[in-house]
Structure formats: C-alpha cells, structure tokens
Design a protein around this nucleic acid. Structure first.
Length: 260
DNA sequence: ATGACGGTGTGGCACCGA
C-alpha cells in the first residue's frame, strides 16, 4: 500500500484550518507537515484534526512560526526544535511515525527566512542551518528511514526561481544558502521532486502581491528530502497548485511525495 | 529605492514574511 507524505506552509492555522481539512479530505495523506501555525499550543485544533482522522504533534508560538506533524498513524519520540541551538522561535518538530510498512522518522522544519544577506536575520539563518545540519546528521544515524520536509526558504537551483538572474545573490538565492542545501543532500538525502521529470517553472510559493500567482512569478522553496534508504521506494512527487487558487489562500501550496 | 498583499497584535498603524 503506497504511503504519502506532504508539506504545506499554511500562514496561520487559525485562518487556514478549513482549507487544511478540505485538502486532507480530498488528499488523505499519511503524514502532513505544517509550518507557520501562528498560534500557541493551547489554540491548536486537536479535536477537529482527530475527527478528520489525524493525530498531531506540534510546537506553537504566538504570532510567528509554529510547526506541526499530522499523522494517520501513531506518532512517538517527538523532538521539538534543535537540541543544539538556543532558539526562542518554534521552527522544528520531529517524530517517528509507525506506519503499516514500518517506522519512519519525519523531521518538519520552518527554515529561517533571513530577510537579506548582511543582516542579523541572515546571520541567524546561517547559524540555524548549521544547527539543523548537525541535528539531521544525528537523526539519520539513528533513523536511516528518514524524511525531511518543510519550508526551506531556499531555491536549490536557478530553475527553482522565476527570475534567477535578476534575483541572484538576494535572499533565497545566495550561494551560502544553496551550499547549506547541498550539505543536507551530502548527508545522504535526495530532493524527491527532482527524482522525476517535472514541468518547467514549477514553484511552491508565489507572492501575494503584483498578481504573483497569476503570472507564475514564484519560487520552489518547499521541499521533501528522502534518505538513501527510502530513495528507491519513492514513486512520485508533485506540487499541488490547486489550493493557491482558493479564496483566502496561503502564499504556499502543498508538496506531496509517494512511497511505493 | 519603494511598495504592492496578507496575518497578527492591542492597533489607530508597525512588523514580518519571501
């Protein structure tokens, strides 16, 4: 029985919960990583998700950030944030999913945006990426069957941006960010989306402003990385643009991987 | 160079995102 794992930055779970429930009803993936909950743990909609067939592990925060893992299967050994990094921002949640096909480790991250090279926020982004790398390395050693999902806030390559030349060196497009992405791959991970032939100009985020989506001025910054142990079982990966056409959409749209 | 759009907060706009 195939298994599906998805990631979606929903830019406020308070606003987007109905869309998440609708999407899950139409696409009953096994696991969904959410980013930018923008709510505290006491406001997390545990009951509504349970009714929809999902249990949840979450790390909330007021106004900003916040991540969750939703799963149709039991979750255990939850780790919140990066143990090696002093960080007040809620950006990472990891858990083991006990699927009928065996245990799977899933790490869900809302990577730092970084604003612009040279700023304090960019320095924080690089520190955070370093700490994430260390943590993923440790998780991989303990759990060979691992998936890293999330809003990476990095375009891995020029083809992942609507304007790679005009935006070269700007945020999401710097050499440093792309080197960090490559360093994650070097741990023994593959970008599931690029394991398959894909349409040109495929993106997962479009600016709300200036008719970004209508003009397909977007970036592919939401990713699913699969470990070497899982790579051969990946049968598909796609971006679901449909939710971006909803009324009151998130600026991101889901990415889904299928394991055979 | 700036702001455009959208979410949040205790606001009358500012901050942040990407």
């Amino acid at each position: 029985m195939p298994m599906q794992i998805a990631t979606w930055n929903i830019n406020s779970l308070t606003v987007r919960l109905p869309q998440v429930l609708n999407w899950l009803a139409a696409h009953p993936v096994d696991v969904l990583g959410l980013q930018e909950l923008k709510l505290t743990d006491d406001k997390f909609p545990v009951a509504a998700l349970r009714t929809a067939g999902y249990e949840a592990a979450f790390l909330g925060q007021k106004t900003y950030n916040g991540v969750a893992l939703l799963s149709r299967h039991p979750l255990r050994d939850v780790v919140r944030n990066l143990p090696g990094l002093e960080d007040e921002q809620a950006r990472v949640i990891a858990a083991t999913v006990d699927t009928p096909q065996g245990a799977l480790r899933v790490i869900n991250g809302y990577f730092v945006n970084g604003q612009a090279p040279g700023t304090d926020k960019f320095a924080y982004k690089l520190r955070w990426l370093e700490a994430l790398h260390t943590q993923v390395q440790a998780e991989l050693a303990a759990h060979p069957r691992l998936v890293l999902v999330g809003d990476f806030n990095v375009t891995p390559e020029d083809r992942d941006s609507f304007d790679p030349d005009g935006l070269r060196g700007t945020i999401h497009h710097t050499v440093e960010e792309r080197q960090h992405f490559q360093a994650l791959l070097a741990l023994g991970l593959s970008d599931a989306y690029r394991l398959f032939e894909q349409p040109e100009k495929s993106y997962s985020w479009w600016d709300y402003r200036m008719l970004g989506f209508q003009k397909n001025r977007g970036l592919r910054i939401d990713h699913i990385l699969v470990s070497d142990a899982l790579r051969s079982s990946v049968t598909a990966c796609h971006i679901d643009r449909a939710p971006r056409k909803n009324p009151q959409p998130s600026d991101h749209t889901p990415v889904v991987v299928t394991l055979g």
